[in-house]
Design a protein around this nucleic acid. Structure first.
Lengths: 325, 325
DNA sequence: TCCAATTATTCTCTAAGTGAGTATAATGTG
DNA sequence: CACATTATACTCACTTAGAGAATAATTGGA
């Protein structure tokens, strides 16, 4: 069907400067990359492979019914994890990765998947790592991390003071303040990607200085590195998830079937990287009718026993907006 | 760089059932598809090619610096339009479109682009069509369109009454009510994609009954058809744009450099398909400081002259959230 | 047994935001 | 100069969101 459109386009393009003489199909290899998130004892964690510095990924194959099922198959077969929720993140073409034939480019399609760590089956090699290992400046649950005032802020200010036009310097200072909540700005947890990109641009991310050996790069800001652009993809996933939990009930994909409201709150806090007001959180959850009581209570720990709840799957049909803002 | 990751994955996969023996690259051809939106005299319009039933699209080429610049190049050279704002929509692999060699699949990457119709240069063949030509049920500016109560609702209810389990029928009724604001539900303009998918699933969209000639399809609901899945891509774009204008100042990409507040309001209304309260709209725009006065006023029409405004481009740096909710 | 510590749960208060209506101002037209 | 028309300003009720205080039900030990 689409051939019609392409022919039309090429006929039109024939009058432009980018006209292509032939109808030869243009080839690329397609990679599927997954950011698989689960809650572990170490906090919000991501499934890593290799030396713990790579996201699961694999080529899109003919046997795959669709992109999404291809990804699902890869992750399930490799790690024994059933992915509950899958969402496409972004598609990009890496300019620097030309295949040997020169006629090949790599298209990477990245996904965010949510699961539970217990869904792990078998003993295959895998690694859950807290995403704050990769982004230590993103965890504000116990206040603004010291790394920001000790390392990030001075280095960004140094970068913003490099020789150049005054307007460039002011713009850099402004972007740094905005992204990291410096000066009067407030911290916005959804800016995870912008923060990573800013540090990358400032040369403070290890991945940014790989390959180009022109001059000695400045020592990078703390945070575990990843191969290729995987850390950027992870930052994209974090930003997307932090935004999404506010208007869609996706947190429950990370929860056990039955949980207390505090456990739910802790999960939301772990994802967003900041604490929430407990009574307000409860009010929000209950007035949205996201959960229903099981009738049971916990007895395991100290303090008053908490009621147990389960997710009301019916809300998925009932409403459009429902989340944990 | 990514080769590392892929090798790791394949080593792991070797223990799974989907192990692939070779490292042979998997090929696909990549199509870029653009939904180019502008305001014309006919309302919110989309750039169509061919018989007005196809979105501009073209293959991703080696000369393209990136996917986005590839798309930009295609559209600019074909239509003379400068695309201000480009945003990736979705990437999908069409199962039914296998290339002649059998070793080929088509990956389509769709984009939403915003421009102004006046940016048109030259006389190349092109066509602006109101997007309500394709989705007549989406325009609620003059009340609920009659097509909903006259055609959509009865046909959907008939579909929801087909033989099957009672739970299936109830679920269908519920989805129809939710998507189209029937019964007690209220209309939600952001559900454009869900509505199209529901009609498609119910066999009421012409594209849904193409190819399969098993039995006589029911007559489709009014609305211009498009080739392949282009109408679905357009629905995705509409939904995305209707959502986005609420929290990001993207409307201004569609506005002339200088405009009145009423013109801005009419544009927002045209996009969202519903009327807004004029005083509240003004209050919102002004308190967000999205615009600044030029000092001039209009003199062209009847009534009190309106102040002219221009977009404050500074807001793009200042804030994260800024829109026309 | 009873008090302290701990966690759960409910309420209140306030500020800010949103939806809807009303009033006033400035222009052109008959 | 009344009047239609569009622009602009103001008000009010209602809902939502942030923050703190108060009360309830447990466990662990003095």
């Amino acid at each position: 069907m689409l051939t019609d459109a392409r022919e039309i386009m090429q006929n039109q393009a024939a009058t432009g400067s980018k006209a292509r003489p032939s109808t030869k199909a243009h080839n690329a290899s397609v990679d599927l990359i997954a950011v698989v998130v689960a809650m572990t004892e170490h906090g919000p964690s991501v499934l890593a492979v290799g030396a713990g510095d790579a996201l699961p990924s694999g080529p899109f194959e003919h046997g795959h019914r669709s992109l999404q099922s291809g990804l699902r198959g890869w992750v399930e077969h490799q790690t024994g994890h059933q992915l509950g929720y899958i969402e496409q993140l972004y598609t990009f073409a890496d300019r620097d990765r030309i295949g040997e034939e020169g006629q090949q480019r790599v298209i990477s399609i990245s996904y965010l998947a949510l699961t539970r760590a217990e869904h792990s089956v078998g003993l295959r090699r895998r690694l859950w790592r807290s995403w704050y290992d990769f982004f230590p400046w993103e965890d504000h649950r116990t206040g603004v991390p010291t790394i920001i005032s000790d390392v990030v802020e001075p280095r960004l200010l140094a970068w913003a003071s490099e020789p150049g036009s005054e307007s460039l310097r002011r713009e850099r200072r402004q972007r740094a303040s905005f992204a990291f909540g410096l000066d009067g700005s407030s911290w916005n947890e959804e800016l995870a990607l912008q923060r990573y990109e800013l540090l990358y641009e400032a040369g403070l991310i290890e991945e940014a200085t790989r390959g180009s050996e022109r001059r000695a790069p400045p020592p990078p800001v703390p945070g575990a590195k990843m191969i290729a652009d995987h850390r950027r993809i992870l930052a994209t996933a974090i930003a997307r998830l932090r935004s999404k939990i506010k208007y869609r009930p996706v947190v429950f994909e990370l929860m056990p079937p039955v949980f207390t409201l505090l456990q739910l709150q802790r999960t939301v806090e772990a994802l967003s990287g900041r604490l929430v007001h407990k009574p307000n959180f409860r009010r929000l959850i209950e007035q949205q009718e996201l959960v229903e009581e099981t009738g049971e209570t916990t007895a395991d720990t100290v303090g008053r026993p908490a009621k147990l709840f389960r997710f009301r799957h019916a809300v998925l049909d009932e409403r459009v907006a429902a989340g944990t803002k």
